Amino acid sequence: MMMMIMMGGVQILIKGLSIASGYYKDPQKTKDAWDDDGWFSTGDVGRFDKEGRLWVVDRKKSMFKLAQGEYVSPEHLESVLLKSPWVRQVWVYGKPSERYVVAVVVPEKKVVMEWGKRNGLDWDFLALCDLKNLKNEILTSLRSEVEAKKLPSFQKPVDVHLEASLDDLQQGFTLDKGMLTPTMKFKRAKMVEIYKDVIEEMYRHSHEGEKR
């Protein structure tokens, strides 16, 4: 097996006697998947751990490139951000014209309500999620998780939006909203469509912060 190094990950290419030489009666698909030397592109992106084991972390088509040319594997980054106690669900995105990512977070309701009580705020969940102080707490936590994993600084979210509209299972990203596939993967193009205005506002807010 051969590895092709990419910024932000490893594209997994394979070749061997057990690998087919092409798709049946589909020359265009074969041309897209096999290079001239017979290496097959799996479409997966992986990383090596300290023991040298390869972990599949994302699909190549899910990756996006930032303005400085750096690639981001969203599934890997989301798995890191999910370690924050504030986060129930998280989706990350980066515009190709921007240098950093932004995040939409479905907060853990119990953690948010406990935070409200500690701060003397006997408010409901929706009202708490509108507070700038809460958003800053969650953003700080997300950035700390990125630092703990020693990921590049451009993977630290510059802003976060809190999705407080939950279903009975306290999920904000759901199949019913058309956000997920049947295997519970993000429909990333749909997410961009849904949160288009939110994304623009987060980047606008981050630019204002840079000017201050």
Rank of each mutant, 00 (worst) to 15 (best):
D44E: 09
K31L: 02
Q68C: 14
W55G: 12
D168H: 11
H205D: 03
V56F: 10
Q89D: 02
E137C: 06
V102H: 05
Q89F: 02
F40E: 03
D37C: 00
G9C: 00
K61C: 08
F48G: 14
W115G: 02
I199A: 08
R212M: 13
M179C: 07
V90K: 02
S79F: 08
V158N: 07
L128Q: 07
I194W: 06
Y100V: 00
V57E: 13
L166A: 00
L77W: 07
L17V: 15
Y24R: 07
A33V: 08
L126V: 15
W91G: 04
L77V: 09
M1P: 05
E70V: 07
V56G: 07
T42S: 04
Q68K: 15
E114Y: 01
T140K: 15
K25A: 10
N136M: 11
D130N: 14
G209V: 05
I12W: 02
I5T: 08
K190N: 08
F186H: 12
A20I: 12
L142N: 01
K149C: 01
T174A: 09
L17R: 08
G69E: 06
K95G: 10
K156P: 06
N136Q: 14
S73E: 11
D32S: 07
K196E: 13
D32I: 09
K25H: 11
E137V: 04
S18R: 10
G172S: 08
G209I: 03
K185E: 14
V90F: 05
M202K: 10
Q11V: 07
A33D: 13
K61S: 13
P107W: 03
H205R: 15
K177Q: 02
L134F: 09
E193Y: 01
V10W: 06
A67T: 04
V101N: 09
K15M: 05
H161T: 04
I5A: 13
K211F: 15
A20R: 11
P27E: 05
P182G: 13
Q68V: 12
S141F: 15
K187G: 03
Y203E: 08
R188V: 00
A33K: 09
K50C: 10
A67V: 15
L151E: 06
Y93E: 00
L134V: 06
Y24V: 09
D26I: 05
D36H: 10
M202T: 10
M184E: 15
L139V: 09
V146Q: 04
D124N: 15
Q89E: 03
L128H: 05
H207W: 13
E208A: 14
E208F: 14
F154I: 07
V101L: 06
D167T: 08
S97Q: 00
H205N: 13
D168A: 07
L151I: 06
